[in-house]
Deep mutational scan, measured.
Amino acid sequence: VSVELPAPSSWKKLFYPNKVGSVKKTEVVFVAPTGEEISNRKQLEQYLKSHPGNPAIAEFDWTTSG
């Protein structure tokens, strides 16, 4: 189950709350306009370098507050 949070234009930000008793931590995933899922800052940096014209990296908020 995921919750969609505010994201930069043409992107989606999905929040996957951890299940009770789960060892997996809460996860935030950005979905690029191409449909590619980005789950960490390093991936995001690589994606933005190879896909010019996207929002600046500073516009991506990895917190769950939206």
Rank of each mutant, 00 (worst) to 15 (best):
V1T: 11
V1C: 15
V1Q: 11
S2Q: 09
V3E: 07
V3A: 06
V3Y: 10
E4T: 08
L5D: 04
L5F: 09
P6S: 08
A7I: 04
A7Y: 05
A7S: 06
S9K: 15
S10F: 11
S10E: 12
S10G: 15
S10Y: 13
S10R: 15
S10P: 15
S10V: 04
W11I: 05
W11G: 03
K12G: 06
K12L: 09
K12D: 06
K13P: 03
K13A: 02
K13G: 03
L14R: 06
L14H: 06
L14A: 03
F15C: 11
F15A: 09
F15I: 13
F15M: 10
Y16D: 03
Y16M: 07
P17R: 10
P17A: 10
N18M: 11
N18E: 09
N18I: 10
N18A: 13
K19C: 14
K19Q: 13
V20H: 12
G21S: 09
G21I: 06
G21K: 08
S22A: 11
S22G: 12
S22L: 10
V23W: 08
V23S: 15
V23A: 15
V23C: 14
K24T: 14
K24I: 13
K25L: 10
K25D: 14
T26I: 13
T26K: 10
T26A: 15
T26R: 11
T26V: 14
E27S: 14
E27H: 15
E27R: 15
V28K: 01
V28I: 13
V29P: 00
V29M: 08
F30D: 00
F30P: 00
F30E: 00
V31G: 01
V31W: 05
V31S: 02
A32Q: 00
A32R: 00
A32S: 12
A32P: 03
A32L: 01
A32T: 07
P33H: 02
T34L: 02
T34P: 01
G35W: 01
G35R: 02
G35F: 02
G35C: 03
G35P: 00
G35L: 02
E36N: 03
E36H: 07
E36C: 03
E36Q: 07
E37L: 15
E37R: 15
E37D: 05
E37Q: 13
E37Y: 15
I38G: 00
S39F: 14
S39M: 12
S39V: 13
N40G: 07
N40K: 04
N40L: 03
N40Y: 04
R41D: 09
R41F: 13
K42Q: 13
K42E: 15
K42V: 12
K42P: 09
Q43Y: 05
Q43R: 07
E45F: 09
E45M: 10
E45P: 00
E45N: 08
E45A: 12
Q46N: 10
Y47P: 00
Y47F: 05
Y47L: 00
Y47A: 00
L48G: 00
K49R: 12
K49Y: 09
K49F: 10
K49T: 11
K49L: 12
S50W: 07
S50R: 09
H51E: 02
H51Q: 02
H51L: 02
P52K: 06
G53D: 08
G53M: 05
G53S: 05
G53E: 07
N54K: 03
N54A: 08
N54I: 03
N54G: 12
P55S: 04
P55F: 04
P55W: 10
P55D: 02
A56K: 09
A56E: 11
I57L: 13
I57W: 06
I57D: 04
A58T: 14
A58E: 15
E59D: 10
E59K: 05
F60M: 01
F60G: 01
F60T: 01
D61G: 03
W62F: 08
W62Q: 01
W62K: 01
T63F: 05
T63P: 03
T63G: 12
T63Y: 07
T64S: 10
T64K: 07
S65M: 10
S65E: 12
G66M: 11
